[in-house]
């Protein structure tokens, strides 16, 4: 039986789901309250622009309301040229303040980069139209594909950095990962002093320390997945398979090392795996198959 090729284009219901889900991720990844008193170690845009005003809860509240209004326009796809830069600027500014406390987090960058990609797509489309150039695809299709490229880039960069920082010896060093499991288990315990799961994590860490070669082999799979991430840009099937592998990779990291990477996981589901598309596509395929197998009323 030949499996039909799914369309590379995104039907309306899928685009609507992507819009709604991404807006929700933007809200989730923009803190509405900050536990900061200053910017002791300005990072990124906080080095270029004085973001101290965001420490004031009133200004932060104003920005948050502005963000929600702009997201409303984003959902309705009205005044995107204005709404997207506002969403991007507020998301970057608030998270830059969070990252200017001497502790860099690696959770919200991927959301900011997807926002940047969507903003760039919007302005590229406007530029093409102004020049009277041929428009190859609809703006929202371009935004989706550029968002997928931003996601692929974050994984690819993480893989490259591992090779660069370890002089190519990352897989050999990975035998010491047991220490990191041990450390993150204790760090999770000291967050709340909740003992649940601590002993199991420590036992796992000691097992990892004693079986370094096995752990290095598992880590090599993870590194391979990061370096292969650009393949998600080759089409629906590649996206589905690699997206599911990356999601499984995140889930195993979350259970081993207490690193949630929630926004990475959500963006994988929204833009790469796209379960809503595959559910509809699968259901459609099943119905076609049933229709074909149904006996014809004229047959004896």
């Amino acid at each position: 039986m030949k499996i039909p090729t799914p369309s590379a284009l995104h039907p309306f219901y899928e685009r609507l789901f992507m819009r709604l889900a991404f807006a929700w991720v933007v809200v989730l990844s923009t803190p509405s309250k900050l536990n900061v008193h200053s910017l002791p170690a300005p990072n990124g845009v906080a080095r270029l622009i004085d973001l101290n005003f965001l420490i004031n809860p009133k200004w932060l509240g104003v920005c948050y309301v502005l963000l929600l209004i702009a997201l409303g326009f984003y959902l309705a796809r009205v005044l995107l040229w204005l709404a997207l830069p506002i969403i991007f600027a507020i998301h970057v500014a608030v998270n830059a303040v969070v990252n200017s406390q001497g502790a860099i987090h690696h959770a919200p960058q991927i959301v900011s980069l997807v926002l940047l990609a969507q903003t760039a797509a919007c302005y590229y489309d406007w530029w093409l139209r102004r020049r009277g150039a041929a428009i190859e695809c609809e703006l929202e299709e371009r935004q989706i594909f550029w968002s997928q490229q931003a996601i692929a880039a974050t994984y690819f960069v993480a893989g490259l950095t591992k090779l660069i920082a370890s002089d190519g010896a990352w897989i050999f060093q990975a035998r010491f990962i047991g220490l990191q499991i041990f450390k993150t288990a204790y760090q999770a315990y000291y967050n709340t002093l909740n003992l649940a799961g601590l002993n199991e994590q420590l036992a796992l860490a000691q097992f990892a320390a004693a079986h370094g070669v096995l752990l290095a082999a598992i880590c090599a799979l993870g590194l391979g997945l990061e370096l292969l991430a650009p393949l998600i840009l080759l089409g629906r099937w590649w996206s589905l398979i690699l997206g599911l592998c990356l999601l499984a990779f995140h889930l195993s990291i979350a259970s081993l090392m207490q690193l949630a990477f929630l926004f990475h996981r959500l963006l994988l589901v929204i833009y790469i795996i796209s379960p809503i598309f595959w559910s509809v596509w699968g259901a459609g395929g099943l119905m076609t198959l049933r229709r074909k197998n149904r006996p014809s009323p004229t047959s004896p």
Partner: peptide, 23 residues
């Protein structure tokens, strides 16, 4: 983005994602 993240390193919104890049 690959080039920008590698060059800009830890400068929000860019990052070279160095967590657990060496052990």
């Amino acid at each position: 983005f690959t080039v920008l993240c590698l060059v800009a390193q830890e400068n929000y919104p860019f990052s070279n994602f160095p967590m657990y890049s060496s052990f």
